[in-house]
């Protein structure tokens, strides 16, 4: 591990990198939440239908049968 530690120590201001990383993520996350909250209702409904969208012949054939 000394090899890694030595290499890292040579980078100026390395101690700020993780903090910057955390802030980048937080900003990403806040924007994400705002965007998601404003997601179009139609789009949301279209996405959530995706698993059911397949032409699942089996389910149609077995319509009246419960597993």
């Amino acid at each position: 591990m000394k090899i890694i530690a030595t290499a890292l120590e040579g980078i100026a201001g390395i101690e700020w990198y993780p903090i910057i990383g955390l802030f980048i993520f937080l900003i990403f996350f806040i924007i994400l939440v705002i965007r998601v909250m404003n997601l179009n209702q139609d789009d949301e409904s279209e996405y959530s239908q995706l698993p059911l969208d397949n032409s699942d012949k089996f389910m149609k054939e077995q319509k009246n049968h419960v597993n």
């Binding site: 909250m37 949301e44 409904s45 959530s48």
Partner: peptide, 10 residues
């Protein structure tokens, strides 16, 4: 469909 797609993203 899943209850809330928005919730799944977040």
């Amino acid at each position: 469909p899943v209850y809330s797609y928005k919730l799944s993203i977040i």
